[in-house]
Amino acid sequence: MFNQIKYFIAVVKNKNFTKAAEECNISQPAISQQIKELEAMLGTQLLERKGRSFTLTKAGKYFYNHSQDVLNNVEILIEETQKIGNQKIEPYVLHAGYLRNFGTREFLKAVEEFSKEYPDIKLNITNGSHEKLYLALEDNKLDIALNDLRRAPSEKYINKFLITSGFEVVVNKKLVDFNQTKIQMKDLVDLPCILVVSPSEQADEEYYYRDILGVGGDFLITNTYEQAFLMVTLCQGYLVINNRTKDQIPHNSEVISLPLYNGGEKMEQKYYAFWKADNSGYYVESFFDILKKQFE
């Protein structure tokens, strides 16, 4: 049936049995017979024949629209099966990445469990900013990434929700009221926002913090969180983190972490697992399933 579906798609695309037969390297009578056998197997007519031409029946239109997806999935299945079968010759490598400022607990636990379940699969792990991970997926340097959602969902990618986490501000206690339990973005306008980014990522991160989160002040740039926390301690600026990672803040009696609000709304970020739709293989999906369990 696999070949019959291929022949049917070729006939419809070429709008001609002879051209389809040439494309599929079989004779015209043979491809006509294969289409008839496909119709007999389905128990319905797909083509309304009119001399040397034809039109699609209602069932034929439905079958054509959906058979292409089925064919693509079968081709992916064949490719993945061949990869698994050839592992002894060429080990399969799964490239996975996670957002640098998200925290490592769940991701590394997933790596550990995946490695135990699939000991023959090599894992290549990386971390980075949102933009670094996005570009790595786009360039096929990553198979799957744990990242925050900053772009509108695209059919090019599979987007699987993992968790929502509130934003918090790490700031020196001297700069807030003693009994303060939350902080407004507008109250930070005169204080620089500290970003932990590389020079190549600075412009994208500044855009996100300015235009999406609403940062109104200047930016200070550093490439390590240790340096960022030192800058907070010295009242040089504030640092935005997610509330999952506040337990990683170095013990320091001079700083405090407060939930970030914009008016009456608590500011939050959604985190997803992303991978390309055309790279949705067995091991990518297995890694996601294990990663998802870490958040349940």
Rank of each mutant, 00 (worst) to 15 (best):
G97S: 10
A59W: 05
A21R: 09
Y64V: 03
E155V: 14
Y209V: 15
F54H: 03
T233M: 12
L191Q: 05
Q82K: 07
Q236E: 07
V169S: 03
K186V: 08
I121P: 00
D187K: 07
F178M: 13
S154E: 06
Y282M: 15
L38P: 13
Y261L: 00
H66R: 14
L195C: 07
D289I: 14
V169A: 02
L71W: 08
C24L: 15
K109T: 06
N179K: 14
L142Y: 06
I249R: 10
I256H: 08
L142H: 02
G237C: 10
L42D: 04
Y157E: 07
E75T: 07
T245C: 05
L162S: 01
E226N: 03
F17I: 08
Q87Y: 00
S32C: 10
Y208R: 09
S32N: 13
G166E: 01
I249D: 04
V74M: 09
K182P: 01
L191C: 10
E75L: 12
T224K: 14
D148P: 10
T181Q: 08
E106I: 12
E22F: 12
K270H: 02
I35E: 00
C24Y: 12
P259D: 05
L230W: 09
Y207F: 10
E117A: 15
I26W: 15
A96D: 00
N101A: 15
V176A: 07
T55A: 07
N16V: 03
I78S: 15
K58C: 11
V176N: 06
V197E: 00
F107K: 01
P119S: 05
D218Q: 06
N127I: 02
D204T: 07
E265L: 10
E23V: 11
M1D: 02
L99D: 08
N65S: 15
E168Q: 07
F107W: 02
I76M: 04
L47V: 14
I256P: 09
N223Y: 14
H130Q: 01
N279R: 08
T81I: 06
T44E: 12
R52A: 00
